[in-house]
Write a protein that binds this DNA or RNA. Sequence first.
DNA 1: TTGTATGCGTTATCAG
DNA 2: CTGATAACGCATACAA
Lengths: 353, 353
Amino acid sequence: MATIRDVAREAGVSTATVSRVYNGSRLVTETTTQIVLEAAARLDYWPNNAARSLSTNRTHVLGVVLPDLFDEFFSEIIRGIDHAARARRHQIILSCFHDNADELIATARSMRGRIDGLIAMAPDARSAQAIAEISRHFPVILLNPGFAVENCGSVGIANREGARSVVRHLRSFGHRRIAILRGPVGNTDAEERLRGYREAIGAGETQHQPLELQGDFSKSSGVLACDALLRFDPLPDAVFAANDYMAIGLLTALLEKGIRVPEDIAVAGFDDIALARYTNPPLTTVTADAYRLGATAVRRWFSASADGGSGHQRDILPTRLVVRESCGAGRSGPDTTDTETRHQHESNAGGPS
Amino acid sequence: MATIRDVAREAGVSTATVSRVYNGSRLVTETTTQIVLEAAARLDYWPNNAARSLSTNRTHVLGVVLPDLFDEFFSEIIRGIDHAARARRHQIILSCFHDNADELIATARSMRGRIDGLIAMAPDARSAQAIAEISRHFPVILLNPGFAVENCGSVGIANREGARSVVRHLRSFGHRRIAILRGPVGNTDAEERLRGYREAIGAGETQHQPLELQGDFSKSSGVLACDALLRFDPLPDAVFAANDYMAIGLLTALLEKGIRVPEDIAVAGFDDIALARYTNPPLTTVTADAYRLGATAVRRWFSASADGGSGHQRDILPTRLVVRESCGAGRSGPDTTDTETRHQHESNAGGPS
DNA sequence: TTGTATGCGTTATCAG
DNA sequence: CTGATAACGCATACAA
């Protein structure tokens, strides 16, 4: 493989000149540039990025670490990250499948020297310590954490407001007894959605009996929840499932039992997965723009590293209600609702907090 | 950031020793190892992989270049690649969105020095030249090309045999006049599926009139094809759409016109996308294991680079017919059919061919 | 505008 | 078993 030295020799110039040509230095004559480029072409020279980043201490690569849950949502996030990174002439190095904090650190470590920063999805609050350790080595942006992490930017979605918009929508059909099928305990998305639900419920008419069911975000837990749901007496008017998979499981179980949706009971989900459009009936749900989530994380990373990485800033992306048919006929609710966007900027530079 | 020299000083040993510890050399005393590790922990030392790979000329990273079509199929491929790579302690650097051969080369170039090899999806035959240029710099494995490329391993799926199994299945319901909705010209998947269709048709009863419709793999081209289909006289018994998106578009257009599937006409697709299960009626289609495709590419890359990269080997992964309801009632065909796996091993080491 | 020389953080080849 | 030191390929301060 030809090196910069080979090119220099072939072109009859010094390595510094070749380097300047490849880095777009305007100090080089047009003619020398041509000579160098031709020599490089003859030798089929491709610059070695490892050497380059060793010298400059920059890689132009972003690390991305996601959990192993690979569905449309994650691929959209990756797509958003890749596009935004590419627009800034950066590449991404991807790693999935970290189930615990230790593995998260190990992955980050193995990226040291080949990335300028990291975008990671924090599975749970336990990871905070790991993240803190990592962010000593390079800037880190957290994807969709429900919690704050020191020295670390983050971008999340408006889970709470999304959940509230579902309850509002349900109310617009006159539904009063509204149950929730919760996601896994400890999962921050699940807990924020639960919080939004409770806020919306509490803000209105009081429910004497808590209508909360436990699920784990899987379709089968939605199926299972059907029985528990039917044990409520009287039957709730509506169920808000904290994600679409559970809503779909519930829908099929309900259908099997001959209970009509939305006539006998209304069902809503969260996430707007591709299938939500094709269920029977089509599922009313809440969508978050995964592509934008990824792209925003990249933007946030660039501004953070421009700042020197100090201060933790947080973006919260809005969420949108997607009204289909599972909550009531006639689409009497508003068609779609955007929850407001919030931008929190909490700089903590200049002193301990 | 602490370097290997800092650790050496802190531990009172040489950099060589520290390096040996981190590379698992068995030449180091248990006690020295401990001393080094403790010093490293105190200094929070993370080895710099850029320097490491500059020295060893290995990165333990695989490049992955895919088109921008991000759906479940691609994310499954990536997942397969990531898992297989991770099992061999490698990472992947991902880049999407190359629409032409030049961009493919540019992307590969920008990876020089940070990857040991490349897994790329070849969009069309025009890319062959680009691939050849790349494979001079590091081993390349092609994903799913219908064509052979010199000095370059590849892994594809059994498009032809999959198409044949669809036609066989259609025949098992007594369908004789079987049309095809083709994919885009130049797309190798589309052309292989067309070939399989023609082989299967030709092998049976001759069709006097070619029942071939042009599509472009999009859902809307499936919708459009409906009119053209209805112009055939008499109406064909069945249509094989070269991918699921077109099949789904066709299905909705047919439904709208009041034409019943499968009673009036049978429809089959290819790919088994997630939605295929939820169409009305559920779509009979062909599935390829995308996860396995990715994983196989990695395996193929490792064996190729062990060989020194000489010889181009090709794997073709089997395909499976997924019988649902769009081709006929009663599931009178076989439930699922695996096409046979083929492994071609064409070593061309030892002389010009 | 171009060339020289040094350093980036590791690994590997020698001696010891 | 351990230490000194020369690569690895490139960028850049400094000189010219």
